[in-house]
């Protein structure tokens, strides 16, 4: 049988348990909402403006760099699995693969994109 079925069971139970706990809290807790209580917390001062503040573009750049290295690392996993059985030339392939991307990291670094300004 497909082993993902068991993973699905874990997912289902893993969803049921927190839903059950939150429902229990919903049942046992008091419910007396009022506008003051519902206002968002801003250190006791009335909230100013809306929560959608414009973000630094830096977050986006780090996410882009992350994406590239994520894909790289994932591609290296099948390489790592076969490494022990295939010998030295496979290692050299891996070194070339990683070196090319290290060049990219150095470029990003030198361009000052890794600075949090």
């Amino acid at each position: 049988m497909n082993e993902w079925l068991y993973v699905a069971l874990f997912l289902i139970v893993g969803l049921i348990i927190p839903i059950g706990a939150i429902t229990a809290g919903f049942i046992f807790g008091p419910k007396k909402p009022n506008p003051i209580k519902e206002s968002t917390y801003e250190c006791g001062i009335e909230p100013v403006g809306e929560a959608w503040v414009q973000f630094k573009a830096q977050y986006y750049i780090f996410a882009l760099v992350f994406l590239v290295f994520d894909v790289e690392a994932v591609l290296l996993f099948p390489w790592a699995v076969k490494l022990g059985q295939l010998g030295l030339y496979v290692v050299i392939e891996g070194i070339i693969f990683v070196s090319i991307l290290i060049v990219g990291l150095v470029y990003t670094w030198r361009k000052g994109m890794l600075e949090w300004v």
């Binding site: 986006y60 750049i61 693969f97 991307l101 060049v103 990219g104 470029y107 994109m113």
Partner: peptide
């Protein structure tokens, strides 16, 4: 193709940095 994928990723990284810059 495996090694070229690395070059492709490098190109993507350089492109992203260029755009952001």
């Amino acid at each position: 193709p495996f090694e070229v994928a690395s070059v492709l990723l490098l190109a993507a990284l350089v492109g992203a940095v260029y755009l952001a810059f």
